[in-house]
Design a protein around this nucleic acid. Structure first.
Length: 496
DNA sequence: GGCACCGTTGAATCT
DNA sequence: GAGATTCAACGGTGC
């Protein structure tokens, strides 16, 4: 029997290791590769411009790859529960395929859609390919509860064996019997540009990490060639503040599914084969297992992205200070290391894992005592690799709310960055206003003598009318509504 | 994947 | 050139 089939892309924006897509092609006469811009997920208050750009690039790349197989990507807007039934009728669809997604919203959406499809006699097939393992199997093997420690997870996956091997992308041969697509494709189902989506692109910087499967595979190949580097990789020894990333930056590609986690896993296994190599938790395999760890926790723990109603999360009476929160979010805390990281986040959509530690600790238990849920929202908007489970899990970790409980291990906003960047070159890159500041003072500009500040062309503190001291302590500077280096610079420029 | 502080150690430098 | 001093590096410890 020949099907008319929709393969519904959501994450999993790739052709390689896409078992649901392969299932779509089987016994198929017409294939509709579909992406739905869902107003719930693709909402401008939740998705920053960098993430929008990454998504659109990824869709364009997907369309480009599908064209090579005599197919196209169909893009439509709307709630999936409303859009899909219309398309089922319009195209006389008999089969629907998609990749399994464990997020709570996705689970309920997919349940609704499956019901709607089955009511119309449409066959629904989903496959697991976003994670290394079937997350529900991990929980089952741990007696129905998610492992709460990394080592426990390792024990469980040891029992499950190695992750499945990735499957190849469909070929032209696989697609040869499929009908071609409509001529009116572009106007009806084309990929919208950022401008067509009504987005403000004025703040966009150079595209350092372009979206898409081709770029993902290129990047994977590039890093896998560096066998010595891969084998000796230890996450804690990579630098949070190098001028170019000290890690692979494959995370955005894994998040959007441009790169299959299993493909990444098995490519690493090939590199490790016959060589001495680092091991989890610090190795690159270890990083993929951390992802699995947080995915499992997010499935097994209710209200995982919230404090209230979350059974593993320490209940904390966090402060609510909108000014501090805004200062953190907008990179104007006055601590150059913190502000440089937050600037990199906004400009590039990525920063090193340990840099995330530093700013997350600062926002929560370390300095500002603001809820991790607030930080979670900011990261979700700005990170290219913002992933629901990993974001929630890591914020709980860093705020010592769950998984990690040594609350006295606090990252110094001054000392931590110095270990790997004594000269403050990273700070100077992202906060060019400080570029003439001597290394000696760059982590604490307010400690520099006035003459040094003037020579550097940047005054760290204005004399406050009522302040008795010319060199207030950092706490005073922080806790007051202190003018930022940027504010002061602008003020100074106006005067002169 | 803290940090600061302290004591030890050993090599380099000074007197 | 012996003894004193300095200092970076390191490890242990408590928060």
């Amino acid at each position: 029997m020949a099907h008319v089939c929709i393969h519904w892309f959501r994450k999993g924006l790739r052709l390689h290791d896409n078992p649901a897509l392969i299932a779509a092609i089987r016994d198929c006469k017409e294939l509709y590769p579909l992406f739905i811009l869902d107003p719930y997920l693709h909402d401008n208050t939740r998705v920053g411009i960098n993430r929008w750009r990454f998504l659109i690039s990824s869709l364009q790349d997907l369309d480009c790859s599908l064209r090579k197989l005599n197919s196209r990507l169909f893009v439509v807007k709307g709630k999936p529960e409303e859009v899909l039934p219309k398309l089922f009728t319009k195209w006389n669809v008999t089969k629907l395929t998609y990749e399994y997604d464990t997020e709570p919203y996705s689970l309920s959406r997919d349940k609704n859609v499956t019901t709607l499809a089955e009511e119309r006699g449409i066959q629904v097939i989903y496959k697991i390919s976003h994670t290394l393992y079937d997350i529900d199997r991990i929980i089952e093997k741990n007696n129905g509860k998610p492992p709460l420690t990394y080592n426990r997870l390792r024990d469980i996956v040891k029992v499950l064996g190695s992750p499945k091997k990735p499957i190849p992308a469909p070929t032209l041969e696989d697609m040869k019997n499929l009908a071609s697509f409509s001529e009116k494709h572009k106007q009806e189902y084309g990929i919208p540009s950022l401008e067509e989506l009504g987005l403000d692109t004025s703040s966009l910087a150079e595209e350092i990490f372009p979206g898409g499967e081709q770029e993902a595979l290129r990047r994977l190949n590039k890093y896998m060639q560096r066998t010595g580097w891969v084998c000796s990789f230890e996450k804690p020894n990579t630098s949070p503040n190098s001028l170019s990333p000290s890690t692979t930056v494959l995370s955005p590609y894994v998040t959007f599914g441009c790169l299959s986690a299993r493909t990444f896993w098995w490519r690493l296994a090939e590199v490790y084969q016959g060589r001495k190599h680092s091991d989890p938790p610090v190795s690159l395999h270890g990083q993929l297992l951390w992802r699995e760890f947080f995915y499992t926790a997010s499935v097994g723990i209710p209200n995982f992205n919230k404090m209230q109603g979350n059974t593993v999360c320490t209940q904390v009476d966090w402060d609510e200070n909108q000014e501090y929160l805004a200062a953190w979010r907008e990179a104007r805390t006055g601590f150059p290391f913190i502000d440089a990281i937050m600037t990199q986040l906004r400009q590039e959509g990525w920063m090193h894992h340990l840099a995330r530690h530093a700013v997350a600790c600062f926002l929560t238990r370390g300095d500002l005592w603001i809820s991790w849920e607030e930080g979670q929202k900011v990261f979700e908007e700005l990170l290219l690799d913002g992933d629901w489970a990993l974001n929630a899990g890591n914020w709980q970790w860093l705020s010592a709310s769950a998984f990690f409980h040594q609350f006295f291990r606090v990252y110094s906003p001054v000392a931590f960055g110095k270990k790997t960047d004594k000269n403050g070159d990273y700070i100077k890159k992202y906060l060019p206003i400080l570029k003439k500041f001597p290394p000696q003072y760059i982590y604490e500009p307010w400690k520099a003598p006035r003459s040094v500040q003037q020579a550097a062309g940047c005054i760290a503190y204005a004399r406050r009318p009522s302040a008795s001291s010319e060199s207030p302590t950092k706490k005073q500077g922080l806790k007051r509504k202190a003018p930022t280096v940027v504010d002061l610079m602008q003020k100074k420029q106006k005067k002169s």
